[in-house]
Write a protein that binds this DNA or RNA. Structure first.
Length: 727
DNA sequence: GAAGTGATGTTTTTT
DNA sequence: ACATCACTTC
């Protein structure tokens, strides 16, 4: 039976088979963590634990899906019955079941960040506060932090420390906004991301019966990426597993060195607390220290960098892998040139090392950096995919249709109403909408009912009646037809589709395409085998699922693309070749995080995560100058580069271009003084004359002596030359 | 109420 | 650079 136990090293074996009692697995990068987690679950099932008694929590849908697939390979179909998913999706599922116990319906809406911000803006306005001193971002992050630290509005309003902090930021009324925000969400039948954790926690505290039910249900609990959990998440986990006479079968896996969400309330204290909290239950700590992923140069560089951090669990990451190639350090004059160099290098690596696009990733600190790389990858006709940033589900055209659907099932959904009542334009203006919302808020009725109750001129009244009548048809139909049918009906009859079709600009066509692919994806959802019953195919269930989607979750297996993503998004992934770009002071580390050692340590951990994604090739780039807010800035190279021992670095190889053969030491010399005069950024616009992007490398074992091989040198000699043109 | 203009903030990271 | 938002004008 135990074939899956073979080939595990002693630490991994212990982590898989120590199924009883609390376990902490400290897992370094590339130490086979996912393997351990999946085998552990497989092992439990082999031992006779029912799959539905296992709760496995991860951070991303992608990780959850991957784990399920891997477990399925070992234990088969049963894997589908495991309660495995992200904190939000699993907790959302429980909240839907228990909804009426917290005065919600199981159809509750999930507000995304845009909805939350929009609501905050409305509230700031209603409270007659100055909108410039209360930016939605800042307010939301205060509210989010409060929730993550289990501080409800009433406590917030009485907390002198928080109030003092707000006062010193010249935002003394945040407590008031917080209070209003919470009551408005509740009234709208909506939860934001934090509520999905907070409300479950509150329910468990308040309702012992419910808590007991889930304590008994989940006999084995596993948590991945534990270093990124916040107080709330740990609180819920503890409620579920730590109680009188509980078996405490909980296993958390994490790496303090990879904690990168402190800004969001995650705290590595959770790992330390966990060891303390479960000490009297016989906690076992297992360290996975052997790295199977990366070459020696990369592992060593990572160790050297992270050593600069002060507070960390003691561990010693090592590898048996070979030395590998040195880490390549590339300096460019402009951010634009950085884009070109990286694209050039990608071409080179594809050819020289026979890499496919999927094995290559470009990692950056901020999503806005993706643009230049996209530009050059497009020039070279290299297929790429940008993760995060303006994700598919955040696009206006997508959100518009979803808002209609939300309003169809939840008449209280204020944010959805605001979005659709006058889009496409039907002559219902802001004043009218404001009247409706304030009426509904004052009288404590659903916004939907406010539409017909509000006092407006007859002309407006007619328009409102027209809107309500249209929506009523949708509502009635939604009860009998599936999500896809409703969506297509709404698309046509609301005028959304016509509005998009009327726009013949390039962007307009793109929007129409997005809109259609949303419809396609709803169709896919309805036709999916896992969604069987009619009930599951309805709009309400679709919306619950889609609200927690991010575009990293749309697996496009058939295409071979180079990935572009933020370092945060790369957590848990690995690639043969990794480019970490924009390694400059004030960018990475971010200027927002340079005020304290703690913040800098987090940036360093982020850098650690970035470089440990690489299996074989690691390229670091930085640029002397870069546009920020439309202004040209000069930054020094990131301190993190200098934290890597020079013996692992290679800045002297420039096979694509003859210029800039600088040594590392030189790179840290007088950078600024080397820039003189008024340099205009140069933009390369020419396309290579031979398209080698679709070049399919032959397996290297097929290459024999005497064969004629296609090399970059040949390609270049054929006369591909860059023409330079001023911007 | 719509459309156009100018000012202002925004860019850290995500479920 | 870009988007959003407040303000003006029609």
């Amino acid at each position: 039976m135990s074939h899956y136990l073979e080939g595990l090293n002693p630490a991994q074996y212990a982590a898989v088979t120590q199924t009883e009692g609390p376990v902490l697995v400290v897992a370094g990068p590339g130490s086979g963590k996912t393997r351990v987690l999946t085998y552990r679950i497989a092992h439990l099932i082999e031992k006779g634990v029912a799959p539905w008694e296992i709760l496995s929590l991860t951070f991303t849908n992608k990780a959850a899906k991957e784990m399920k697939e891997r477990i399925e390979k070992v234990v088969g179909e049963k894997a589908n019955q495991i309660w495995a998913g992200t904190f939000h999706s699993v907790f959302g599922k429980i909240l839907r079941i228990e909804a009426e116990k917290i005065n919600y319906t199981s159809d509750f809406t999930i507000y995304d960040t845009d909805d939350s911000k929009s609501l905050i803006n409305s509230i700031v306005k209603e409270l007659n506060l100055d909108s410039t001193s209360y930016p939605a971002n800042a307010v939301l992050s205060r509210i989010s932090n409060a929730k993550s630290n289990i501080i409800p509005p009433a406590k917030y309003a009485n907390n002198p420390v928080l109030l003092q902090e707000d006062a010193s930021q010249k935002r003394p009324h945040i407590y008031k906004i917080y209070e209003t925000y919470v009551s408005r969400c509740r009234k709208a039948g909506a939860m934001d991301f934090d509520d999905m954790l907070y409300l479950l926690y509150a329910l468990f505290i308040k309702n012992e019966e419910v808590l007991t039910k889930y304590r008994n249900k989940f006999k084995y609990v596993l948590v991945d990426e534990f270093q990124d959990t916040n107080q709330l998440q740990y609180g819920i986990i503890k409620l579920l597993t730590y109680y009188d006479k509980s078996p405490c079968n909980i296993c958390v896996v994490g790496d303090d060195a990879q904690s990168i969400y402190a800004f969001r309330g995650a705290t590595i204290d959770n790992i330390l607390d966990y060891e303390k909290d479960f000490k009297n239950r016989g906690i076992k700590t297992i360290k996975l220290e052997q790295n199977y992923r990366s070459t020696h140069h990369i592992v060593q560089a990572a160790n050297e960098v992270i050593a600069y951090n002060s507070r960390q669990l003691k561990k010693d990451i090592w590898t048996e892998n070979n030395e590998g190639t040195k880490i390549r350090l590339i300096r460019t004059m402009t951010d634009n040139e950085e884009g070109k160099r990286v694209a050039d290098l990608i071409l080179e690596q594809k050819n020289r090392f026979h890499l496919i696009n999927r094995e290559i990733v470009i990692l950056y600190r901020t999503n806005s950096q993706s643009r230049v790389f996209e530009e050059y990858l497009r020039h070279y006709n290299i297929t790429y995919r940008v993760f995060g940033g303006m994700s598919f589900y955040h696009r206006k055209e997508v959100k518009d249709l979803l808002a209609y659907l939300r309003l169809v099932i939840n008449p209280n959904d204020e944010e959805a109403l605001k979005r659709v009542i006058n889009y496409p334009k039907r002559g219902i203006g802001d004043t009218t909408v404001e009247k409706i919302i304030s009426l509904a808020t004052a009288e404590q009725i659903p916004v939907w009912n406010g539409i017909l109750k509000v006092e407006v001129p007859p002309r407006t009244k007619n328009l409102l009646v027209g809107f309500v009548e249209m929506m009523e048809v949708f509502k009635q139909k939604a009860k009998v037809i599936n999500a896809y049918e409703v969506a297509t009906m709404v698309a046509r009859q609301s005028g959304l589709l016509n509005e998009l079709k009327a726009d013949t600009t390039i962007e307009g066509q793109g929007r129409l395409e997005n809109f259609n692919s949303l419809l396609d994806s709803i169709k896919e959802y309805v036709e999916n085998d896992l969604v069987e019953t009619d009930d599951e195919k309805n709009i309400s269930n679709y919306l619950q699922t889609v609200s927690l989607y991010t575009d990293a979750d749309d697996e496009k297996n058939d295409t071979d693309y180079v990935s572009l993503m933020s370092v945060h998004a790369a957590k848990g992934l690995e690639f043969k070749s990794v480019f970490v770009v924009g390694l400059e002071e004030k960018l990475f580390p971010s200027f927002m995080s340079m005020n304290s050692t703690q913040e800098l340590d987090e940036e360093r951990r982020l850098f650690y995560v970035a470089i440990t994604r690489a299996k074989q090739l690691l390229t670091l780039t930085y640029s002397n100058s870069r546009y920020k807010f439309g202004q040209l800035n000069y930054n020094d190279p990131s301190r993190f580069i200098s934290e890597i021992n020079e013996s692992h670095l290679d800045s002297n190889v420039n096979s694509m271009k003859g210029n800039g053969t600088e040594l590392v030491s030189e790179a840290f010399g007088s950078l600024k003084s080397s820039i003189k005069g008024n340099f205009k950024p140069i933009r390369q616009v020419s396309l290579p004359k031979i398209d080698i992007s679709n070049f399919v490398p032959s397996p290297s074992e097929n290459i024999a002596a005497g064969m004629k091989v296609f090399t970059l040198e040949i390609w270049r000699r054929k006369g591909v030359r860059d023409r330079r043109r001023k911007r």
